[in-house]
């Protein structure tokens, strides 16, 4: 029996006809077990009070002040849509420029890791003795708090490096997976509009 065949079958990438006797028996066994998993874990609608509590919590938040609104407008990501015609025109202009000045233009050889040059590794650090986990989240990860910091020697100083694109960013630390904490050592802050202060991080483009 080949485990890969079973995985491919369960992933929907192989037909049952392609399985030999033992694999077929295992596949059938898995089908029964997966059905049991589904019936043991039915959909559970959210209780109605969640909506009320969420809306009450939102209503209790202070209105964003004008500074916070202005900051939010400045740093809000915006999709850029270009029409095919505009892209074609831009490409034609670029080609013309290259042709006209081709001899003057020198294209540097691509550096190793050039694709990664757009990010800068930033060292984050928070002193939080007794914390069970510390992560950092900000506009660079849509405030998911997925970048986990480490405290390998247990001295309460949590550190970690995060790849961040050049620009102005805001961030906070997420302690024990539930409490957002402002970086006490940041050089500047901005009101997030809800009573907290986001730390501001200015990341310069790497030198070429």
């Amino acid at each position: 029996m080949n485990d890969d065949d079973i995985h491919r079958y369960l992933d929907g990438e192989a037909e049952v006809q392609g399985l030999d006797g033992n694999a077929l028996a295992e596949a059938r066994s898995w089908e029964r077990m997966l059905a049991a998993f589904r019936t043991a874990h039915p959909a559970t609608p959210a209780p109605s009070w969640i909506e009320d509590r969420v809306m009450a919590a939102i209503e209790a938040l202070p209105e964003p002040g004008p500074v916070a609104r202005a900051w939010g407008w400045l740093v809000r990501p915006r999709p850029v849509r270009l029409s095919p015609g505009l892209v074609g025109l831009a490409a034609a202009v670029l080609v013309a420029l290259v042709l006209l000045h081709g001899r003057a233009l020198r294209t540097p050889a691509p550096r190793p890791g050039a694709d990664e040059a757009a990010v800068v590794y930033v060292q984050f650090s928070l002193t939080a003795p007794g914390a069970q986990s510390v992560a950092v989240g900000g506009d660079f990860d849509e405030w998911q708090g997925t970048h986990v910091l480490e405290d390998p020697d247990g001295d309460g100083v949590w550190t970690g490096r995060v790849a961040v694109k050049p620009g102005i960013h805001t961030y906070m630390f997420l302690v024990n997976g539930s409490r957002w904490v402002t970086d006490p050592r940041a050089s500047s802050y901005v009101d997030d509009g809800f009573g907290n202060r986001d730390a501001v991080l200015a990341v310069a483009a790497p030198a070429t």
Binding site: I50, P77, D192
Partner: peptide, 25 residues
């Protein structure tokens, strides 16, 4: 646990509201 799950969902939805302006899409 339905109780724990409900608390987590509530927390996630409030957190989503607070960070809605950072949503890219």
């Amino acid at each position: 646990s339905q109780d724990v799950a409900a608390d987590l969902v509530q927390d996630a939805l409030v957190r989503g509201y607070r960070r809605l302006s950072s949503l890219r899409d």
